[in-house]
Design a protein around this nucleic acid. Structure first.
Lengths: 336, 336
DNA sequence: CTTCTATGATAAAACCTTTTAGCAGAAATA
DNA sequence: TATTTCTGCTAAAAGGTTTTATCATAGAAG
């Protein structure tokens, strides 16, 4: 009945209840030291009985490992961030690592505030995430005393960075369209200053050669509609496929083609980029699109930061993770 | 030069550098105890100089306050969760409170795992969030030793809970349509087993009286299109306005009406629910819709948990926070 | 000159855990 | 018998902070 009422059980309670010293209790629970088998058994049983759970703060203080990491993102409404957080969390929960999520709202003051708070909390590492591949972290990330991993964001030279493989993803889409016999493929995409847009466009050009035709614009549905309008009024021969730089653009394209009674996929096949299901599944017809596998990206980033926190090494530089192609009816009337 | 090289500065370093005891240093930094003004000044200057920042683990261990909270959500792709997290985080960052985000993926095992981990980390409180208002937390939430706040989720009797005011939001939309002179308003919404759908429908019925007509279905665009098809084939007189239970449904409705050359808003005015901007701004015409103010909801939940963690009291029960109406062209040809 | 009070500072305990170093007793070796 | 080795356990230190109780010193009051 010692100190049984206030607060949580401590290892002292376990030791008392089992009639051993604190040190023995600790050793038994952690399975280290020279402890008789039956003592171990007894301590563990007692600990279980009284519901002992070690205080992570005390442990962290001593071991200099908090088993927590911070995740800093600039995205507050994000369909991009949350899948990654879920992936990170999923990869780490089994290792007993928890994740502080810090939304910076693109405010550098807030970013600094969060960063300091994370350091005060002795996080073992930090994952920096953004909504643009070429978004750079604030300068104070330059020399941090703990490892940093960049996911879907641009890190400094020689940092550990994970990006979706935009080029491979674009090839997946274009080759798919070509495999269906399409010859004249148009590429409608977002602003040229986005690195992702440029990479995808380059990959597209490499496959389509002379026939390549790229129009840069916005990441919006409206731009998709407008681009179609331009295409129709130009008087040129129509393409037999359109590869869109995002699902939103694709949605605009599909709607505009529908309005003009152009059949999808018979007259023009469409492919998008993002596999943002809530959009891609609801277009008419449903959209063939490239999935960036953001959750898997998050898992990889989580694993990487975990290795780094354990002092293990991770290949530095930018790792590009493969995208996958989700085939729906906008490209094939009857996909197997 | 004492222990100047390894790891972070500790309060001991500050004390040494300022030529005072640890106790005095602590007192000076925290502004308590009887300390001479110039001593305070000196200690603070020195601390600043050597870049001292207190170790949150040590402090938390002693004060039994981690100044961290946990947020548990079942939503991984969440347009609902992230705005709330952002709101919570925004409300708490100035109080020095950080947020552990735990995504449970609807897996009770994972939920339990996360919960235990949070308790081990001595979080001061927990916010439970879900993607359905009537989603109940796992049973182990019943008697937790720390305060819990429910946001966009159903808590046990007498718990502190925040919901959007669905009824008021629905009234906002319906009254807006009525204010425009619309008499025959139809309500197309999601599944009847969702509490939110029922509440919104009831509020709608209360305002439309005999003319009320509700069709329950799915939360999808496709259902919106199908509902319009049913409406058209029924042979009844067309409504002059449709209040949709979600923006996705509204989008389907708008597309289907367009396909049938029914003019929006002249023939039929449309209002949605969610203000999911990426959808609502891109419909043709852009969608008038109800905003649930999720970020504000998050802020309120954050503030509430903070008060509770400080031992202050918070009105128990369900607090319904007002929604706002965003007027766009789907209801008014020319909104002022 | 003694006793009190105020002032400013500090040693030490506390929070909870892990780990090092060491202790006593038994068994094995010389 | 005397020494070494092994076994099982434990006291104490460490981690970084806050707080309590105590201690000098100096000035004020008696």
């Amino acid at each position: 009945m010692t100190r049984s009422d206030k607060g949580r059980r401590t290892i002292r309670d376990v030791a008392d209840a089992a009639g051993v010293s604190i040190a023995t209790a600790s050793n038994a629970l952690n399975g280290i030291g020279r402890t008789k088998a039956e003592t171990v058994e007894k301590v563990r049983r007692v600990a279980e009985e009284i519901g002992f759970r070690p205080n992570a703060l005390a442990r962290g203080l001593l071991k200099r490992r908090s088993h927590a990491i911070g995740m800093i993102t600039n995205d507050t409404y994000g369909r991009l961030t949350l899948p990654m957080v879920a992936g990170v969390s999923e990869a780490l929960v089994d290792h007993g690592v928890s994740v502080f999520l810090c939304a910076t709202n693109n405010d550098p003051r807030l970013a600094r505030l969060h960063l300091e708070s994370l350091l005060d909390r002795q996080v073992d590492g930090i994952i920096f995430t953004a909504t643009r591949l070429d978004m750079r972290p604030p300068p104070e990330f330059a020399k941090l005393p703990i490892p940093v991993v960049y996911a879907f964001a641009e890190g400094p030279e020689e940092s550990v960075t994970f990006h979706p493989d935009d080029a491979q993803g674009a090839r997946l889409a274009v080759e798919h369209l070509q495999g269906l016999g399409r010859q004249r493929i148009l590429h409608i995409t977002g602003p040229e200053e986005y690195r992702a847009a440029r990479i995808r466009a380059d990959a597209y050009r490499a496959l389509t050669g002379d026939g390549a035709s790229v129009v840069f614009g916005e990441w919006t549905e409206e731009w998709g509609r407008e681009a179609v309008a331009q295409m129709l009024s130009s008087g040129h021969a129509l393409p037999d496929a359109i590869f869109c730089g995002s699902d939103e653009i694709a949605r605009g394209v599909i709607d505009a083609l529908r309005d003009n009674a152009i059949s999808i996929p018979d007259d023009i096949a469409i492919a998008g980029f993002d596999n943002w299901e809530i959009v891609a599944k609801q277009t008419r017809p449903p959209l063939t699109t490239v999935d960036m596998e953001l959750k898997a990206l998050g898992r990889r980033a989580g694993l990487a930061i975990h290795r780094l926190c354990n002092g293990e090494s991770v290949e530095p530089g930018t790792t590009r993770l493969p995208c996958s192609l989700i085939v729906r009816k906008s490209s094939q009337s009857d996909p197997r």
